[in-house]
């Protein structure tokens, strides 16, 4: 079937190249401005790379701004959310994959419903609910909210990974006397490691990026996450492009690392689910 002409092949590579350029250009520009010294910023406006590089913006952002605090806050929130969600979602995903039980239909319907309605609806009521509990302006509050928001999707994701693992493995273990939970923990979970990694990555990225609830629930610098900090910074120092973009590059690092780590599982994992289904 591979009777493609040379022309077709060239066109294919060219199209791929266009996509890669389109995907990378904005990030490249972010990096470029962040290493451009202030005196060249306006004189060399649309040049592709500054004639002289400097890391002064990064030094300033790391030493003289609150960004290290924002960075730490976001790490704590996204990390804790990812771990808790993955733990709980692997339990509930396993139940959806292996058990038939009364109310399962309603549970799935409820989880689907949470994926359909606009979360922005919840901004006001969640603020009202959390504020008497002292959970506004707190990292714990954000972790609780993000955990709940991410569980339904993570459950479906984990379920699809569990569905790809043959039931016979656990049945053999149960014949050998293991309980269902032992079989789950010692046989199924180790086989789902790629799925667990993917779920961790998904949830971490989602929590790292969340903006609206962080804006509403957090005021002041001490508990601000990266999005809130960067946005406050932008509205306060809107002329200092070099520093803003340096901060932007820093916000990009953990998300990209996580992504490069998990991206090979994405299509693979989804395919496994699709083939089976």
């Amino acid at each position: 079937m591979n009777s493609y002409s040379t022309f077709g092949t060239a066109l294919h590579r060219l199209a791929i190249l266009c996509y890669v350029l389109f995907a990378l250009f904005p990030l490249f520009w972010l990096l470029k401005v962040s290493v451009t010294p202030n005196d060249l910023l306006y004189s060399e406006g649309v040049r592709m790379w500054p004639s002289r590089m400097s890391f002064e913006h990064f030094r300033f952002v790391l030493a003289h701004s609150a960004f290290p605090v924002f960075f730490r806050n976001s790490m704590i929130v996204a990390g804790a959310t990812a771990v808790i969600v993955t733990l709980l979602a692997s339990l509930s995903g396993y139940a959806l994959s292996r058990f038939t039980f009364r109310g399962k239909y309603w549970l799935v319907a409820l989880m689907l419903l949470t994926q359909m309605f606009p979360l922005v609806m919840l901004v006001a009521p969640i603020f009202k609910m959390l504020s008497p509990l002292g959970l506004t302006n707190s990292l714990t509050g954000l972790v609780v909210v993000y955990t709940a928001f991410n569980i339904p999707f993570a459950t479906f994701l984990m379920q699809s990974f569990f569905d790809g693992i043959p039931k016979e493995l656990e049945e053999a273990a149960k014949i050998d006397g293991a309980t269902q939970f032992m079989a789950f923990r010692q046989i199924v979970l180790p086989l789902t490691l790629p799925g667990i990694a993917a779920t961790l990555g998904f949830v971490f990225t989602a929590a790292w990026s969340e903006l609206l609830f962080a804006l509403m629930l957090i005021s002041g610098n001490s508990a601000a996450t990266f999005p809130v900090g960067l946005l406050t910074f932008v509205s306060k120092f809107s002329v200092d492009f070099g520093q803003m973009m340096a901060a932007g590059v820093l916000a990009l690092i953990p998300a990209c690392l996580f992504f490069l780590f998990i991206q090979r599982y994405l299509v693979q994992g989804l395919t496994a689910g699709a083939v089976k289904g």
Partner: peptide, 25 residues
Amino acid sequence: AIAQALVFLPWAVPTFLTGLNWAWL
């Protein structure tokens, strides 16, 4: 594999940063 990783990268960029980045562009 590498082309796929690169073209999927924008998806990992936090949305607030996507917004700021394009506003700057």
